[in-house]
Design a protein around this nucleic acid. Structure first.
Lengths: 200, 200, 200, 200
DNA sequence: CATGAATGAGCCTTCATTCAT
DNA sequence: AATGAATGAAGGCTCATTCAT
């Protein structure tokens, strides 16, 4: 429990945006720590320093705040990756850096990701939301290759790469290689090579 | 009571094994259809033709029966794959067949898989269980390559391939390519090539 | 609080019918005392000696148990009135007795009646239910007149009489004449004359 | 804030009376449409173009505004009826007109009436308020008879007539005769005859 | 072995009301 | 006079689990 978020001090009367942001931040932590089903709306409110009613002034239900948390999280990841991409480096370094960033992000938010994958399978709204993110990822990948003047590739192959990246990073985030007696480093390297080979 | 409503006729006092098997079968269906959190233990018992008490005579809790369902399901998949592997075919056909079978299986059990992935992230027991399955997969892959007299590869690379396979099949099972406007067939082909390239 | 229903002793494991009946009895008291909106399902269960979950094993929601309570109450009233009607008396005595019984019943269950009238106006299911009771009342009235060999009357007039009866009894039950400085007895007499005049 | 969403434009700082009147008007609509328990005070304020706080600056609680709404509504009904009564007509036409007006009024405000009856049974303050209205009704009836030089009648009989009127009009307002397969017109006629017979 | 009535903690959500601005 | 963010008690309902039979 090192990341225990103690009841944040907050303005007694904040702006709706501030309150909303505080709720989303608390929810993100809670979902990541306890999962979607292990998190309840009252507790989110309390963790953000509010009472139960406040939650429902800002979100119609738990799913809605989950999507907001998911959105924030995806945005954050992409901003980081896009920053790296703009710093034009050599392909090797870029591939390494992308894997590093993705892995770091998936590790930090592994609980959130696990919840999201479960909800995508079950909830049409979450699914639609997820598809939109994927589309953005595919576009970014294509743009990246173009900027590098690399030959184009069918989007289906890009999708398989993205899936490989995310699944491998999730597995690494949960310590799967270690638990299997494999070298974590070697897995990361294999992933890096796959990215390198594919993108440029 | 003449209005006994049971799903299937069954011996009022069956063998423990029979009862257990019926419960697991009902649970597998229910978990696959409604997910772990969407399935309630009373309903599982009822669907199998038993009362809630009987459920807890055979399983200490919901997680236990989930693991049993998971086990059954994985066993089934492997029996199918091993059968194919033993029928010595050419590499092309074998790769195609492995992808076909995995995809079919992931499609049929997509709900169960989604639940499982969520639980793996959260529950140490489920995780241990999952790791054991993975080990078996890795061993099978190594054995297959050996039988084919293909040069050995580091297990870390095998792991990345397995993750690619499972994630891509999950995405296909949930219709992700179609929803993104991509060709399902092309994704399957890309996956097949990856398997072909990797294993032999 | 003279009619405080102390947590009834009950068999640890009763029949569903017994449990249901105990819940309905508790609900009837609670609705009568505190009104539909002032009564909550947990409290009904508790008053009957059960926990919240038991309530929902027997009723899908609060409305359902309200209808059951209403049903019981109407049945009871009619059984009483039909008993009187069968004891062939002279018209005077019969009219007096019917008013007496109705009044007694409306007084005892005035809270239940008030709730019911509110729900009839708002809830289609309760309304349908109420209409069915009314039909039965009209039939009973017609049958009574026939038995007495009194000339028939249009059902619309019977309806107006029933409405007069019930509204006047409700007003008496809530002490309206007294609070207006009128003679309760005179109101009862006026009502009795209306019944006498109308039915035979 | 340029996105001020109000139902009606209104002075930001109106007279207390104006604000109060707008709130009462909004409440009357809301109570009539959704009932007392189905109406929430924030929504009333919003519908009137104010914030929740303003509501509680003008009314101590929900009951108070309900009584105000009730008052307005009763006043309106009586102004209409008194106007008719003053236009000296023949008894037939007068009786018909009184029934017509009452029926129209009860139909328009059937939701409000249903709520009121429920509250009268439960809340002493509402009850006192209601009794005052009844007294006024009784006085009007006596005055009407006197003006017509009809012989006096005991107030208890007048009360029974008023109860008959209101209950029958409530039933008509909720479509009870139709739903019972009876003729609405015949019920109205029966009621008119009762009024005619009684008052003059 | 099997039953099934009963449990009760706990979740989601609402809404009358307050108070600092 | 008006705001509107915030409150928090409370209510409806679920479901994994128990235990007396």
């Amino acid at each position: 429990m090192t990341t225990r978020a103690t009841k944040t001090s907050r303005p007694l009367r904040g702006t709706p945006e501030g309150t909303r942001a505080r709720l989303v931040a608390a929810a993100t932590q809670a979902f990541n720590r306890s999962g979607y089903h292990g998190t309840d709306s009252n507790r989110i409110a309390q963790a953000a320093g509010y009472s139960p009613g406040t939650f429902y002034k800002h979100f119609t239900d738990k799913r809605e705040i989950f999507l907001a948390a998911f959105q924030d999280w995806v945005d954050e990841e992409w901003q980081a990756i896009e920053r790296e991409v703009l710093k034009a480096r050599d392909p090797e370094a870029l591939a390494r850096r992308i894997v590093e960033l993705t892995l770091k992000h998936h590790t930090r938010w592994r609980g959130l990701r696990a919840s999201m994958l479960g909800l995508v399978a079950r909830d049409p709204v979450v699914r639609r939301f997820h598809r939109a993110q994927r589309r953005r990822q595919l576009e970014m990948l294509a743009a990246l290759r173009q900027r590098r003047r690399a030959p184009p590739r069918p989007p289906e192959e890009d999708l398989v790469l993205l899936l490989t990246m995310e699944r491998t990073c999730d597995a690494l985030a949960l310590g799967e290689p270690r638990e299997l007696g494999l070298s974590r480093k070697a897995v990361v390297e294999a992933l890096r090579r796959a990215v390198r080979r594919h993108v440029f």
